[in-house]
């Protein structure tokens, strides 16, 4: 039985169990916050509550960089939050989908993933929207 004190620091067994690590970190955070002035403690508590309240609104999706860039440019030029633009775009998408104005079948290709049956051919979708944007810009 090895004496724990004699083990080298690089010994893998000296790493903490991930759950123990997370618990000690949380305790450490609480203890360091406890020593802060009251105002700062209250500010941290408010920030934590804000982050907590925003959790149901947060989602992570993979987007083609070109779409992300476009969203950012639009957000910068209109000076509105990108999240709200994305929400508006999704709302319009669902309206089109529900009214039958948009047929996803045109973009579907079979997927080899065990998780999904289909993929959507996004580049074509994007080119289509790019073309229509340019057409609209030319017409106006």
């Amino acid at each position: 039985m090895p004496d724990p004190k004699s083990r080298p620091a690089s010994d893998r067994s000296l790493e903490l169990d991930p759950s123990v690590q997370s618990l000690t970190e949380a305790m450490e955070r609480r203890w360091s916050e406890a020593s802060l002035p009251r105002r700062q403690r209250e500010k941290l508590a408010r920030e934590r509550a804000k982050i907590q309240a925003r959790k149901p609104q947060r989602a992570t999706y993979d987007l083609p960089p070109v779409l992300r860039q476009r969203l950012k440019q639009l957000s910068d030029s209109l000076r509105v939050p990108a999240s709200q633009l994305a929400a508006l775009a999704l709302l319009r998408f669902f309206q089109d989908l529900d009214s039958g104005a948009l047929d996803l079948g045109k973009f579907k290709t079979p997927s080899r993933s065990p998780r999904y049956d289909w993929n959507l051919e996004l580049p074509e979708l994007y080119q289509f929207s790019e073309r229509s944007r340019k057409t609209r810009a030319r017409d106006s």
Binding site: D11, S13, D17, V20, T24, W31
Partner: peptide, 21 residues
Amino acid sequence: RETFLQIQAVGKAFGRRVWPP
């Protein structure tokens, strides 16, 4: 605070051998 100090000490001495409490 005592628990916090002791879990740190135990973690330092026994590493991964310390199971979640």
